[in-house]
Simulated scan of single mutants.
Amino acid sequence: MIELAGISKTFKGKQGSIHALKNVSLSVKKGEIYGVIGYSGAGKSTLIRCVNLLEKPDTGSVKVKGIDLTKLSTKKLREARSNIGMIFQGFNLLKTATVYENIALPLKLAGFSKKEVEERVKKYIKIVGLDEKHHAYPAELSGGQKQRVAIARALAFEPEVLLSDEATSALDPDTTEAILELLLKINKELGITILLITHEMNVIQRICDRVAVMEKGEVIEEGKTKDLFTSPQHPTTKRFVSNLFTHKIPNDMLEKLNESGQVVTLSFFGESSGEPALATVTKKFDIYPNILSGSITHLKEDTFGQLVVHMKGDPAEIHKAIRYLEQDQVHVEGVKISDENKRVS
């Protein structure tokens, strides 16, 4: 549905050139929710604005449904953009217009008939759950309600692609969860492909099928959300994943425990807490596992858990136990002494 190939973008500032994007390539499949995550300055906002050519890349191609937008005339590009909806962190609502008018005005300007405008506005106000707010003004709405209006406005053109530019970062956790549920509903019931950018890993884990991690204008890691949680490769990806968990083992404790065995992190998917596997390991090998910490988080269609375990025993037996767990699809990683904040890596 979306194909970005070799996208580069440089901005010229007072202090020199800023290379916002460096040869970025991404492929978003029809009907999926694809996330792009990165810290501030990673280039993700520039990337998403290149998809509908709000920012025109210096090099590379931007294809939506097989059509390269960079080669279209102004008129054809305007027509193509009607198939790409976009929602923003700042809502971008007209303060002097009602909910109804904020959604209707873009349709009127695009030349839709009065009847069609009315039908679409009513339809999408209902979909986003604002049936009783037709005549309310933005000042009378909560942040979550404002974002719902913005989503309804984007959906009113009935696009096949929806771009989300940090749409939940200004919202509280409960409201964020509600908006994410709405995006899942839109994706599932309307079949709209969603490309979103965020700096929040909980957004990625909650609704995304696949994810790209960006840093300094480049994609440093990409794949299925499940795979990145199971086995992150780049240090930045590992940092994002570890931020979801609160395992904090003091360095002096780690040093002491490692004298009598090994401290490891076990990562697993599914409903199991990992304890049956540990119980089996105890029976099969001459080791004594002790759970130091544990947590579970929910992905879009699965459950991901981690346990920090001290395996006490002979190194050879510990090695056999780890091999057994890995064969049982449990990802095992040794816990390292932290240099900075004593957080498990």
Rank of each mutant, 00 (worst) to 15 (best):
I2W: 05
E3Q: 11
L4G: 08
G6R: 04
S8I: 02
T10C: 12
T10H: 06
H19L: 10
N23F: 05
V24N: 01
S25Q: 09
V28G: 04
K30N: 11
K30I: 14
G31C: 09
Y34T: 05
G43V: 15
S45K: 07
N52Q: 09
N52W: 02
L53R: 01
K56V: 11
K63I: 03
G66E: 01
I67T: 12
L69W: 05
T70W: 02
T70K: 00
K71C: 08
L72D: 12
L72C: 08
S73R: 06
K75H: 13
I84E: 00
G85Y: 02
M86A: 05
M86G: 05
F88D: 01
Q89T: 03
A97R: 15
A97S: 15
Y100P: 00
K108A: 13
L109F: 13
A110W: 04
F112W: 11
R120P: 14
V121Y: 00
K122F: 07
Y124H: 01
G129L: 01
G129M: 00
G129F: 00
H134D: 14
H135A: 14
L141M: 06
G143W: 01
R148L: 05
L155Y: 07
F157Y: 07
F157N: 09
P159D: 04
L163N: 10
D174H: 13
I179G: 02
L184Y: 01
K188W: 14
G191P: 01
L196I: 06
H199N: 14
V203M: 04
R206Y: 12
C208G: 12
A212S: 07
M214T: 04
E215R: 12
K216W: 05
G217A: 09
G217K: 03
I220M: 04
K226E: 15
F229W: 00
Q233F: 10
P235W: 08
T237C: 05
K238S: 13
K238H: 13
R239G: 06
F240Y: 03
F240S: 03
N243H: 15
L244N: 10
L244R: 06
K248Q: 08
P250A: 04
M253H: 10
L257R: 06
L257D: 01
N258H: 08
E259Q: 13
V263F: 05
S272T: 13
G274K: 00
P276D: 02
L278W: 03
V281D: 04
K283R: 15
K283Y: 14
K284G: 10
P289K: 10
N290R: 14
S293A: 08
G294D: 06
S295N: 09
I296V: 11
L299V: 02
V308F: 05
M311L: 12
K312I: 04
G313L: 08
P315I: 10
K320N: 08
Y324Q: 02
E326Q: 09
E326R: 03
E326N: 03
E326F: 10
Q327R: 09
D328P: 07
D328M: 15
D328H: 11
V332N: 00
K336T: 15
V344N: 03
V344Q: 04
S345T: 11
